[in-house]
Nucleic acid binder design. Structure first.
Length: 428
RNA sequence: GGCGCGGUGGCCGAGUGGCUAGGCAGAGGCCUGCAAAGCCUCGUACAGCAGUUCGAUUCUGCUCCGCGCCUCCA
């Protein structure tokens, strides 16, 4: 299997199974409900873990929850930990609704503090970091490969807010001394404080996956500075760290009038309420994981239609010549995990009526519910029967009236040749 | 300004040096009391300009346009 890696800027071959594949994905900073965009890496990497597991790998997925951070302090002055706890519950609740299960580990920064402090101390001891006024900074000049991941040239970076404690404008904080108004702090060799933004990921990844692991994932917007800094810290500490760096494309919001303010993002909660999990998952499948994807009513509507055609295949199986076998899906996903090609293969199976194969593929993507049909309430069954009776006596006015009534209840009646002569299908 | 990605038929979105992506929407037909679902048929696209080549949408260069990142960001 091959995956595109930002670090090597090319497709990188995974070692053949069975081997352990450690995957670390940057999860959210918890201070509000996550938005649809945050759900993309969550979905992609849970799918990937499923696929790798099915391919015979021992895949372990770790995805962190950053629960100490400037943004959390800013969002809830004086009670940041309560907000972090609340937002963590929201995150679990919202992502649970995707129905894909959970990562193998979801470490919290606040529960990894010993490892974080130990890692910083190591970097200080080896001269890759220095203490200044209770803060600790990473010495970028001490790490020759800095900039390798993002392609950013260190000498071209400019500092936004000059920090006199830094020896070099490019240096970044590993540890920050507690400031006025911050309601949480931890003891460290450098006094009370809390970790900087990047260090927690280095510490958690090493703790859970070891000093060398296969895949590190996250949104494209994390390449710099977050991942560049993670890589620098961990490599400077003598770890190989991640081999392959996967960065998913970002969601773009279009087709909706922007409310001018920054608050135009849609929460995952709202999207799930409005469109349902099946449509959202299918929507994510319609773009390659590295491509940007437009989130709009039109693109979501198209995804919903695709869900509908898959569902219909199980209600009314077509009989056609057999299409390609399972290996077609393997070929699609083994080459840079192309869900778009996988989708094309699945449509092929749908049209060919290869339903068991299709069901297996849908299950992989958490869409097995499309293969299940819901039983209609008894009163609707009764109405459908009365409609059949009306049709039998050519009372089409009554038959159409009943059909409208059933439709109003959110169901569709279809005339079929099989036994009861009708079929009730729930509409979205 | 620096780094990087991309421009494919009405829309979304793959892919390939010469041979079918796929989905949605649309047109016609079959089926149906009418529908729905399903089936059949239909679109000859690859930003522009040069170049390499027997042949380029696919390789190279340039131009135009769009997007992401450049210490808040999945």
């Amino acid at each position: 299997m091959r995956l595109y890696s930002t670090l090597q800027r090319k497709l990188v071959e995974l070692p053949p199974p069975p081997v352990e594949i450690g995957i670390y994905v940057c999860g959210p900073t918890v201070y509000q409900r996550i938005h649809v965009g945050n759900a993309r890496p969550y979905v992609i990497f849970l799918w990937l873990r499923r696929w790798l597991t099915g391919r015979g790998y021992a895949a372990t997925l770790a995805s962190n929850i950053t629960d100490v951070n400037d943004k959390i302090y800013a969002a809830a002055p004086g009670h940041s930990s309560e907000l972090a706890e609340q937002a963590t519950r929201w995150y679990i609740e919202d992502t649970d609704r995707l129905g894909l299960g959970r990562p193998d580990a979801e470490p919290k920064a606040t529960e990894t503090m010993d490892d974080i402090i130990r890692l910083i101390a190591e970097l200080v001891a080896s001269g890759h970091a220095y203490e200044a006024g209770g803060d600790v900074y990473f010495r970028v000049a001490s790490f020759g490969d800095y900039g390798q991941l993002s392609g950013q040239k260190p000498d071209q970076m400019t500092e936004q807010e000059p920090n006199p404690l830094k020896q070099d404008a490019r240096d970044f904080a590993l540890w920050k001394a507690t400031k006025e108004g911050e309601d949480t702090s931890w003891d460290s060799p450098w006094g009370k404080g809390r970790p900087g933004w990047h260090i927690e990921c280095s510490a958690m990844a090493a703790k859970l996956l070891g000093p060398a692991f296969e895949i590190h994932g996250g949104g494209l917007d994390l390449v710099f500075p977050h991942h560049e800094n993670e890589l620098a810290q961990s490599r400077a500490a003598g770890q190989e760290f991640a081999h392959i760096w996967m960065h998913n494309g970002l969601l773009r919001l279009t087709g909706e009038k922007m409310s001018k303010s920054l608050g135009n993002v849609q929460t995952l909660e709202r999207v799930l309420d409005e469109w349902g999990r099946e449509t959202l998952l299918l929507f994510f499948m319609t773009a390659h994981w590295r491509s940007p994807i437009d989130f709009s009513p039109a693109t979501m509507e198209a995804a919903r239609e695709q869900a509908w055609t898959f569902r219909n295949a199980f209600l009314h199986p077509p009989e056609r010549q057999p299409a390609r076998g399972w290996e077609a899906l393997e070929a699609a996903l083994d080459e840079d995990f192309s869900t778009t090609e996988a989708l094309a293969v699945m449509h092929e199976w749908r049209a060919a009526g290869q339903l068991e194969q299709l069901r297996r593929a849908l299950t992989l993507f958490g869409l097995e519910t499309l293969a299940e049909s819901e039983r209609a309430p008894a009163e609707l069954e009764e109405m459908a029967r009365r409609r059949q009776a009306a049709r039998a006596t050519s009372d089409f006015a009554e038959a159409d009236r009943l059909r409208d009534e059933i439709a109003a209840a959110g169901w569709e009646v279809r005339d079929v040749s099989d036994d009861p002569g009708y079929q009730l299908v729930k509409k979205d």
